[in-house]
Amino acid sequence: MSAMAEERSARAPWALTAPALMLFVGVLLIPLAMTVMLSFHDWGQYKGIEPVFILKNWHEIATDPYYAEMFWRTFRIAILTTLLTAVLGAPEAYILNRMSGRWKSFFLLVILGPLLISVVARTLGWALLFGGNNGLVNKLLMSLGAIRSPIPFMFTETGMVVALAHVMMPFMVLSVWAALQRLDPQIENAAMSLGAGPATIIRRIIMPQIMPGVLSGAIIVFSLSASAFATPAIIGGRRLKVAATLAYDEFLNTLNWPLGAAVATLLLAALVLIVVGSNALIERRYAEVFR
């Protein structure tokens, strides 16, 4: 190959990725950088945003226990949601995978269903079922005498976790499902022929092999839950704020953009650290299964 052709072929990848790269820079990197900058600006009730460089917002977040509590709540909810989807979603995917043709596609549709409905509509559904005295389920259970007062669901962390888990379940099921597809179809027979019972097969053979799927599903669910907005906004309302709803309020209600930007930046940084860190850990731990 001549030097010129070589030069041209070296430039080709850049030329080809340029449009996507420009889009990436334009709609992601620049706004992101501006948000980070914004978090260092000053803000006052009457003066608005002042483009100066101060650490006031960061100082406030670091010292006011309100923010620590709010972040802790955000991650607590995300962790519990992740656990709930893993505990329910992994067996669900396994059972689904064992079903025969027609039932399999039907239940796959049922599981993917939530993805087809708007988050807002789905979450309002929960509110209709459990919302205070008028919630359908609460009313029914109370008229049956099963419970005396309505099950607390709205404005509780439990409610948020349950509703989020419902929304996130497809991601976990699909991720575990993908891992199950990689299993050798005879692997259970092989274990059985060596004398293993059903429980042993699941614990010793299936679980270790689908663990990477569970963990990558967990990363997706965790990051989506920690940054979720609609579900916490509807279920948690004004009382139980998480990072995303707080940032939203600072931006649109208080109009304290710099503080909102600081909260958003911190959430992003924490998420990136957690996701990248756990991903690296998982890949190292499960190198043999991932290959």
């Binding site: 050798d184 027979n189 299964v289």
Partner: peptide, 12 residues
């Protein structure tokens, strides 16, 4: 004792 066509070894 069974040897499967795909071997069905336990990869982990």
């Amino acid at each position: 004792g069974i040897v499967f066509q795909s071997y069905a070894l336990f990869p982990h």
